[in-house]
């Protein structure tokens, strides 16, 4: 299953919930304000550290928010919309944690 999170981890429990629901074969894609969780050094890093899932962030949304690659948490992969489509196709369904 592919999970998407579009909320900042500082205003919503979506990311925390998503991570606790995601199975080990799942992927989590951060989009929109969800990409703030991709920045290293913040409190939200702890949420991701325990996660066993593959973690992605959408680069157009990172760029729009001034988050450069050197500020990203370790182990996170950056994808564009083409990568988003690939992830959605690869996984059997998509769960949007709105």
């Amino acid at each position: 299953m592919l999970h998407t999170v579009n909320k900042s981890p500082y205003c919503s429990d979506s990311l925390r919930l998503c991570i606790s629901y995601a199975g080990k074969d799942d992927a989590v894609l951060l989009i929109e304000d969800g990409v703030y969780a991709a920045m290293c050094g913040g409190n939200s890093e702890a949420i991701l550290q325990g996660a066993e899932v593959a973690l992605y962030a959408l680069w157009p949304d990172l760029q729009a928010r001034g988050i450069s690659e050197d500020k990203l948490v370790d182990g996170l992969k950056v994808v564009g919309y083409d990568g988003f489509v690939e992830l959605a196709a690869k996984h059997s369904k998509v769960q949007s944690w709105l």
């Binding site: 579009n6 959605a88 369904k93 998509v94 709105l98």
Partner: peptide, 8 residues
């Protein structure tokens, strides 16, 4: 095959 939802 896939339904993808976008919202708030």
């Amino acid at each position: 095959d896939r339904l993808v939802e976008f919202g708030d």
